[in-house]
Amino acid sequence: MTTVAERQGITFKGGAVTLQGNVVNVGDTAPDFTVLANNLTPVTLADSKGTVRIISVVPSVDTGVCDAQTRRFNEEAANLGDVTILTVSVDLPFAQGRWCAAAGIDKVQTVSDHRDLSFGLNYGVVIKELRLLARSVFVIDKNDKVTYVEYVSEVTNHPNYEAAIEAAKAAL
């Protein structure tokens, strides 16, 4: 049986929660993952190789902060050029697709980690108690090096959008 790394350090609505998976740090080679697109096709890190990636992680697109986070990165995408933006959650692909259509999201690709938590475990963002992903943002350069990491300390708070966007611009 495989042991999954666990750590404390973030809260959800003020209560401590346990994060599962491997911590990712600036300078690391970005871990691979397999998630599902809204049409159920697999999406991996290699699919966007050669571009700068912003990976925006949210617990569920159907909540206020997650909605705002995904919309903000969708708006910023127009000014970023050759940047791929993924929003990862454990929402079902069908729900993500429905939400994107209703919200007019057309520059950010929503992907689902519901099947086996491949992204969540490889990036250390699985909330053990809820089987949701913790709010976080990762920027990965064209050579798969992690250039920015934010694990948001309170899951219901917004990430530092400006810092993530500046990191993406610096990686271009």
Rank of each mutant, 00 (worst) to 15 (best):
D141P: 06
R72H: 05
D116F: 09
V88W: 01
N160F: 03
V155D: 11
G97Q: 00
I85S: 06
R7W: 05
A5L: 14
T18A: 12
S136H: 05
G81I: 06
T147Y: 13
I55Y: 09
G104D: 00
R71L: 13
V61I: 15
A171L: 08
Y148R: 10
V125W: 02
H158T: 11
Y161C: 05
E162F: 06
A134K: 03
E76I: 07
L36W: 02
P159F: 02
S118C: 10
Y151M: 12
L40H: 11
P42N: 15
L92R: 01
V139F: 09
T147M: 13
L132A: 08
D67E: 13
T51P: 08
Q8W: 01
A168Q: 00
N25E: 15
D32V: 00
E162K: 12
R98H: 04
T110K: 01
D47G: 13
D141N: 11
V155A: 15
V23W: 03
I85Y: 08
V24R: 02
L121C: 12
T147G: 09
F73A: 08
A171S: 14
Q69C: 05
G120T: 04
N79F: 14
Y161F: 15
L117Q: 15
V43N: 03
N122L: 03
F73G: 06
V137D: 00
G27K: 02
K128F: 05
A78E: 10
A30K: 00
K49D: 11
C66F: 01
G81S: 13
A168T: 12
P93W: 03
V90Q: 14
Q8N: 10
V58Y: 06
E166L: 12
I140G: 09
D141Y: 10
E154T: 09
K169V: 13
V24F: 03
G50A: 12
V65Q: 03
L19H: 02
D32N: 13
A46K: 14
D141E: 13
L80C: 06
